[in-house]
Amino acid sequence: MVKYILKRLALLIFTLFLVITATFFLMQIMPGTPFNNPKLTPQMIAQLNKAYGLDLPLWQQYLHYLVNAFRGDFGTSFQYQNQSVSMLIGQRLPISAQLGAQALVVGVIAGLLMGAASARNKNNKIDGLLGVVSTLGISVPSFILGIIFLYLFGFKWPLFPVSGWGDSFSQSVLPTLALAVTPAAVVTRFVRSEMIEALSSDYVQLARAKGLSEKEVVNKHAYRNSMIPVLTLIGPMAAGLLTGSTLIENIFSIPGIGQQFVSSIPTKDFPVIMGTTIVYALMLMVMILITDILTAIVDPRVRLQ
């Protein structure tokens, strides 16, 4: 197991290196320059370029970046001068991560419950209703839900604050819900089909033939077996949520990393773009690694290989 994890970590670092390289060179293709403020004179631009090392040949810039990045230094922002990228991300990522984690927990738990309810009531009214709900949940983007929630529970029936972050927990309720709907819907559908498969499997038949009640059959046999495939779904989903939702953060004025990523693109804030991309990639890979480890823990077939 330890050997397996070390191998995966080595692979992770290598992949990260590829991501850095790809992003670095792709950014060069983007039209425009970072310093396009009309008030800047050509001399000032030259000076700035020099200060940020942009006058060096590309391969030198790349090597510098790589060396610094592996030392943990991701440079300073062009946009917010004197702010280091690590600091910017360090301030904003925890906000996004908290919001994402809340949404993930709410979404996954709701999905597990609804999926199981749907499967156990296969083809009757409850299943039909949950089917409609989950189809809507998958097809309506979360920012539209965000706006709807904002209108309904922020203005029409003002139950929750409509914007801001960090002053009270209630501020996070609406954005959490808006973000949780899609994962809840995806997990519902997935759990439903896995559970239906499990409930018609031979081992569940055998469990029934032992004289177990339907509840025992579901809890002891069907649930565990349908959970394993769900885990593989949650990894990438977690990475997506924890790295913040640009639109939701904008709608609810949440100073998260998603909001900042967007503003860094039109301003060609290269160090911030690079830093954020690296964080996204890292999160994704770490989450997938964690789910693989979790899968190995709950699934004996994987564990013993």
Partner: peptide, 11 residues
């Protein structure tokens, strides 16, 4: 049951 490959709970 008929098929021992599928009638035991794999987990």
């Amino acid at each position: 049951f008929q098929d021992p490959m599928t009638s035991l709970d794999p987990t």
